[in-house]
Amino acid sequence: MERALYDYLLRRGDDSLILSQRLSEWCGHAPTIEVDLSLANLGLDLLGQATLFLDYAASMNADVHNADALAFHRDAAEFRNCLLVEQPNGDFAQTIVRQFLYSTWQKMLFDRLAFSKDPTVAAIAAKAVKEISYHADLSADWMIRLGGGTDESNRRLKAGVEWMWRLVPELLVADEIDNELITKDIAPDPASFETDFMTKIAEVFAEAGLDVSPLPRNFASGRRGYHSEHLGHLLCTMQYLPRAYPDAQW
C-alpha cells in the first residue's frame, strides 16, 4: 500500500465527510425551508465526495472493506480532517464563515487536483470541482449579505470569523505526506495557491465590511489525528447507529 497516497485520500475524504455531517445537523433547523434545502444539498455533495475518496482509500487497504468501514469504525484520533470542518455550526453566520473559508480553499485545491497524475484522484476532483464552485459562490454571497445586512447579522458574521480564522493556517501547510505527493505530481502544493486564496478572502471580506487579520501561526494538526474536543461528539452521533447495530440495513 502506498502510505502517503492512502493518508492523502483520508485527508480529502474526511474533510468532506465531517463537513457534510456538520451541515446535516441543520436539517430541519435552518432559518427557512429554502436555506434548509440549500445546506442539505451542500452536505450531500460533500458526502458524495467523501464516499469516492474513502472507497478509493479502502481499495488500497486489505483491512477495510469499504468507505463505510472507514467512516463508521475509526475513532477520532484516526480521522485526518482539518480542524476547520469539525467546528460547531454555531449560528447561521458561523456556519457560513466556515463554509466560505473551506469551500474557497477546496475549490482552488481541486482545480489543481483535477490534473493529478493519479487518474482516480483526478477524476474525483474533476467531478467535485463543479459542486465546490457552487458552494464557494453561495457562501461568498451569504458572507456579503450578512456583512451588509443588519447590525445583528454583521455582529454575528464577525463573531464567526473570529472563531474560524485561527484554523485557516492549517489549510496552507504541507507536511511530508503532501511533499511526497507534490513531488510525484499527484497533489498540488497548497503554497502554489496561497496568494490567490488570500486575495479571494480579502475581496469577499472587503465587500462584507470585514477586516482581514494577519494569519496566526499554525497550531493545528488534524491531519495527524490531533483534533478539537468537538470531533468526538460529532462522531458519537454519526457512528452510533452502525456501531450499535452492526450490518443494519435500511
Binding site: 429554502e34 436555506v35 434545502l37 440549500s38 444539498n41 453561495l138 449579505r145
Partner: peptide, 18 residues
C-alpha cells in the same frame, strides 16, 4: 421565498433541480 432575484435563483436551483 427569497430576498432578491439572485437568491431566488439559488433557492430555485436547490429546491427544484436536485
Amino acid at each position: 421565498h427569497a430576498p432578491d432575484g439572485e437568491m431566488a435563483m439559488r433557492h430555485a436551483r436547490d429546491t427544484y433541480t436536485r
